[in-house]
């Protein structure tokens, strides 16, 4: 069976030898093709591009803010560390009895230091108690000792019981001290 052939005969209109109808059809096809490409290729690409660009700039802005925040916190931390270097170092050091005797000799004559117990304090610290037996010339020596204990290389708290007993020209003094140390400092030391 032969299919019937359909022949479309376009009317011919020529101006200066240019086929106006044919060119108009080409132009119309060109416009249609452009619209089709814009609708199905360019517009989705622009959408993808725009989304990617927006996400990029949002992330960039968030990154810049986070970086600024990080620098700010780092600066604060460095400042805090510098301001409290003495305290931070004091929390890392071990208590040394001989060194403590040397420090206290300007205020009292330490006769005996008895270590009691070590207990955890606020999860991060170890608190060790010592009983100090000493002799002082006057209570003022003890006051001066307490005033200057803040300059000592360990964190020391003078605590109860405190026993003052007059003995000839001197005063026998018994008191408790508590030293505080960072537990992580201990762990670091063991690791090394």
């Amino acid at each position: 069976m032969k299919l019937p052939s359909i022949k479309i005969k376009l009317p011919k209109l020529k101006i200066y030898g240019i086929d106006v109808i044919k060119n108009a059809l080409f132009f119309a096809f060109y416009i249609s093709m452009t619209l089709f490409i814009i609708a199905f290729i360019i517009a989705p690409s622009v959408k993808i591009f725009k989304n990617a660009k927006n996400s990029y700039f949002l992330s960039k802005q968030e990154f810049d803010n986070t970086k600024q925040n990080y620098r700010h916190i780092l600066e604060q931390l460095t400042k805090l560390q510098n301001q409290n270097q003495q305290i931070l170092n004091a929390f890392k050091r071990n208590f040394n009895e001989n060194n403590f005797k040397l420090f206290a000799k300007d205020y009292m004559n330490i006769i005996k230091i008895t270590k009691q117990k070590t207990i955890p304090y606020k999860n991060q610290f170890a608190k060790t108690s010592y009983i100090i037996t000493a002799q002082i010339k006057s209570p003022k020596n003890f006051y001066d000792f307490i005033n200057n204990i803040k300059n000592y290389k360990n964190i020391i708290r003078v605590y109860f019981p405190i026993d003052f007993e007059k003995s000839n020209k001197e005063i026998n003094l018994t008191f408790k001290i508590e030293t505080y140390r960072l537990l992580t400092a201990k762990a670091e030391e063991k690791a090394h």
Partner: peptide, 18 residues
Amino acid sequence: YVSFALFLLVKAYFYSKN
């Protein structure tokens, strides 16, 4: 047209990578 669309897609790819 296709080059322009590809250019946009490549640019979008680099944006998403970054």
